[in-house]
Design a protein around this nucleic acid. Structure first.
Lengths: 200, 200
DNA sequence: CTTTTTACTTACTAACTAGTAAGTAAGTTG
DNA sequence: CAACTTACTTACTAGTTAGTAAGTAAAAAG
């Protein structure tokens, strides 16, 4: 590191720190509301250094979504998630959204990008579609298994219910941002009431 | 109109045309993805002329939300809506969202602004909160009345169910944008199935 | 010990951003 | 007919945007 001795904190991998920071800015402010300057200033480097790691904002945005997709696949296949009974798999999913709500009222990736979707670079659009499709397919399978074992209750097809639940969760995080955390808890409470209630 | 004779089409009120166009851009691209130049170019005027009508983008944005709030109140109080039985009031609401989905996959006002919410001017934030609050209160009352007359079915409090349904509808329009109209219809179909199904 | 690679900085461009000030043509009002 | 108002245009500022090209210090590789 030129012209500067290492401070107390670890400098970490700049490339990773850029990605983390950009992801945070994306989830807290939206894709068209942050710039290379924001990232550079926060990291104490120059905007050109950000271009060195991610040559364009399109690249950076695509990297964010691609990493989230990798994380989703990893999480889904984790033994401590994959081996759970369906009702607890659903609870694990709700816990992820809950942690977003508690962490600075971050919205989910989908909710952050949907409104600006048409202004996004094509590769980013493609990754986001895959992300949403895989998550929906996973939940549909969880819901189907849960209904088969009578631990989850719903009418209609698992695919439609999965799409509905995920859409509700994405929207609930947006409501939390506009108001506060309480409507989010209200909505998630309603979802639990409907899906997890004991047999009538 | 200097230097130009009126063309075949009506020039209309420029101020209203700016508001319409800005609203369209907002719902199709997001607040941080359109500029005075976009509006000016489309209307065949100069950006400064847009500033003449709406002195700042904050003003323009606030005017869009304020108008939507006025429209909501007007729609809600319309005899052909207010005098309907609850189940048909719900259908009328669904029809509004459906028309958004069919009209260039526009998202709703809430869905367009939630992600970028923190970057919005304070008056716009306030108007959007009011908009969402009034819509939720209206739906909660519709749901309560519908359950009382056994034409709508749901568990839990009307307030929680109203928040959940509106959140789902906002999210469903976003999914329509990212994929296509079919998941929107799937989700709305699921909502109808749950709320309007005949007594078991 | 020299060469190459890594991770930047400095300095720059071209385009776009919101916003302002001054001017002007046409229509309205007294 | 004169003064004023409306609805603009032209010309501008100051700041920000993504992105590039050239240079450089330090570390790694041969």
């Amino acid at each position: 590191m030129p012209l500067q001795s290492a401070p107390a904190a670890v400098p970490a991998d700049t490339r990773a720190r850029i990605l983390d920071l950009a992801e945070g800015l994306l989830l807290e402010r939206g894709f068209n509301a942050f710039s290379y300057q924001h990232i550079a200033r926060e990291l104490g480097i120059k905007p050109a250094a950000v271009h060195y790691h991610y040559s364009s904002k399109d690249d950076l945005g695509t990297a964010i979504v691609a990493r989230q997709l990798r994380r989703l696949r990893k999480w889904r296949d984790l033994p401590r998630v994959a081996d759970l009974p369906p009702a607890e798999q659903l609870e694990a999913l709700l816990a992820v959204y809950d942690s977003h709500a508690r962490h600075a009222c971050r919205v989910c990736l989908f909710g952050a990008l949907a409104a600006d979707f048409r202004t996004l670079p094509a590769p980013m659009q493609a990754e986001l579609r895959t992300f949403n499709r895989e998550l929906t397919e996973w939940l549909a399978q969880v819901l189907a298994a849960g209904r088969a074992t009578a631990s989850l209750r719903f009418v209609g097809s698992p695919a439609a219910k999965a799409a509905q639940v995920l859409t509700t969760l994405a929207g609930a995080l947006q409501v939390a941002r506009v108001h506060d955390e309480t409507p989010f808890q209200l909505i998630v409470g309603q979802l639990r009431l409907e899906l997890l209630s004991p047999n009538p």
